[in-house]
């Protein structure tokens, strides 16, 4: 049960509404990420939305019904997205590199999860 900090990149711009939230895999792993990273998934964003104010938003915890390995990859992509979203048009986004880091065995599972997470 290791807390993995996935948000080193965006950690430099800690704002008041950019607090830490917890993402849980269904096999019990727990990840701490910045809210801005969680917001890369629309489903997570709605889940944590204080206006909707569901139980998850109060607990600031998002359960994801996937294995840790999938959640980890999701969050890696979300960090990647959150980071490069602000990139200028001239900056090169290393999409290819990222793709190479996805093991083919989990691709299908990852795809379903991504669809569910609406990102």
């Amino acid at each position: 049960m290791a807390d993995v900090d996935m948000a080193q990149n965006s950690g430099t711009t800690a704002e008041t509404d950019n607090d830490w939230v917890r993402v849980m895999s269904d096999d019990g792993y727990s990840f701490l990420v910045r809210r801005s990273v969680a917001n890369a998934s629309e489903t997570m964003r709605d889940m944590l939305d204080t206006a909707g104010n569901y139980a998850e938003a109060i607990a600031r915890t998002c359960p994801v019904s996937q294995r840790a390995v999938i959640v980890e990859k999701l969050l890696e992509y979300m960090s990647f997205k959150a980071y490069y979203e602000k990139a200028g048009p001239k900056e090169e986004v290393p999409v290819q590199e990222f793709m190479e880091r996805i093991p083919p065995e989990i691709v299908l599972e990852l795809l379903l999860a991504a669809d569910y997470q609406n990102m």
């Binding site: 849980m24 269904d26 096999d27 359960p63 019904s65 294995r67 390995v69 065995e105 989990i106 599972e109």
Partner: peptide, 20 residues
């Protein structure tokens, strides 16, 4: 540290065999 409210629970499957 667990969220077992999920009804659609996945059985633990190894990385090599993705679930269907």
């Amino acid at each position: 540290m667990c969220s077992d409210s999920n009804r659609a629970s996945n059985t633990h499957i190894s990385l090599q065999k993705p679930p269907r």
